[in-house]
């Protein structure tokens, strides 16, 4: 598995685990997780994937990738 394939699988898996808590907030929670734990290149790759048709990404994972690309200063200092 290369990084691109891996980040898609990871984003889907993270989103799936947040969906079971609360579908409405799953994309935001997944985005927070990605911003907190992924390096910039991985975030860039998932963003590229999300900006395509991204058939491999779940709706929540795709939304999360786009949210995670927003100003990361919002999470500075967290947790």
């Amino acid at each position: 598995m290369n990084t691109r394939e891996h980040v898609v699988a990871m984003a889907n898996q993270i989103a799936r685990n947040f969906v079971v808590r609360d579908r409405a907030s799953a994309a935001e929670a997944t985005a927070r997780h990605i911003r907190e734990f992924w390096d910039p290149r991985m975030r860039a790759l998932i963003l590229e994937e999300a900006r395509t048709d991204a058939p491999a990404l779940s709706p929540e994972a795709k939304a999360a990738a786009l949210i995670a690309a927003d100003d990361r200063a919002a999470t500075a200092g967290k947790p």
Binding site: T3, F37, P40, M42
Partner: peptide, 17 residues
Amino acid sequence: DPEPGLRIPNMLDAAVD
């Protein structure tokens, strides 16, 4: 650097890349 770095599996993926 204020950005998170790579975990071990991510390092190996990046190496393959």
